[in-house]
């Protein structure tokens, strides 16, 4: 065989070298990290929607304390940068959980948990336990990241959904009242089914924003695409089997293209969904659709 194999990259040139370079084990992990991003999107989107839904309902509740909680939750993301929450929520959650476990598992531990610049809980309360395998540590880190994303995006979704609930025509709700429905029935049967058309543009927007927020996983210490792009792109000396100069700019260019592709794809899908939801609605979009179909 004249051409070398991937086992001996020094003998390779041009495309063959590049082909071998792009299929190293590390690169496979880089490609897999795109899966991490997609997994984050798949898990976070429904969670955030659920949290947002609860937040929006709470901000309309009759009970004052509940309403205050809902309003605070929807308002918190307006004045404060979301990145603050991304940094805050995982540590706060981690310490909160460990503290709870500490109180339950080690009730006879008398020393304070906060000692100067330290946060010490008994060994049995550590999360995850120091004896657990590495994979669980990583999973726990990812779970904290998901929680941070869900809390922040839940607040944004709550804003959108609260707006959509307010956009449902009052007459619809008043008619339901006139029919003697209870508040709960009105919410379940009238308000929620009707709000979706109003919520869709906002939720679509939110989805795009969620996609663009995924590189922040890097800040939370997850080995995501940003981590691997920095790792693989940095200059490699001849001590490595594939030496190359600083290529980080190319890796980040690839990430940029990946995100642009995701945005474009989402735009197309969302505009299709909007069109199909607008069917038969007494809105401008529905009217335009009816006319287009008739012509």
């Amino acid at each position: 065989m004249t051409a070398g194999t991937c086992a001996d990259p020094a003998t390779l040139e041009g495309l063959a070298w590049l082909g071998c370079y792009l299929s190293t084990g590390k690169h496979m992990m880089f490609y897999a990290s795109f899966g991490t991003v997609l997994a984050l999107l798949a898990i976070t989107a429904p969670l955030a929607l659920a949290l947002g839904f609860l937040g929006a309902l709470a901000s309309r509740a009759r009970l004052l304390p509940l309403r205050i909680i809902g309003k605070t939750y929807t308002a918190m993301v307006r004045g404060v940068p979301d990145i603050v929450f991304f940094l805050f929520v995982p540590i706060a959650l981690d310490q909160g959980l460990e503290y709870l476990r500490h109180r339950i598992k080690c009730p006879d531990w008398t020393e304070p948990v906060r000692r100067g610049a330290d946060f010490v809980v008994c060994p049995a309360a550590k999360l995850p336990l120091s004896s657990t395998p590495q994979i669980w540590h990583e999973a726990y880190g990812f779970a904290l990241a998901v929680a941070a994303f869900a809390v922040v995006f839940g607040a944004f979704a709550a804003n959108v959904l609260a707006g959509a609930m307010n956009a449902v025509p009052r007459a619809q709700l008043e008619t339901a009242e006139a029919y003697g429905m209870t508040q709960r029935q009105i919410t379940r049967r009238i308000l929620i089914p009707q709000m979706w058309t109003y919520a869709l543009p906002g939720l679509g927007n939110l989805w795009m924003i969620l996609i663009k927020a995924t590189p922040l996983l890097f800040l939370l210490g997850v080995e995501d695409i940003v981590y691997w792009a920095r790792e693989l792109g940095s200059a490699k000396t001849s001590a490595y089997s594939f030496p190359h100069p600083d290529w980080r700019v190319w890796y980040f260019l690839a990430l940029l293209l990946f995100y642009l592709g995701m945005t474009k794809l989402s735009e197309v899908l969302i505009s299709r969904m909007t069109a199909s939801l607008a069917r038969g609605q007494a809105t401008l979009g529905g009217e335009a659709r009816r006319k287009a179909a008739g012509a």
Partner: peptide, 9 residues
């Protein structure tokens, strides 16, 4: 595209 990636790039 994310601003975060734009900064890095």
């Amino acid at each position: 595209s994310p601003l975060f990636i734009q900064f890095f790039l």
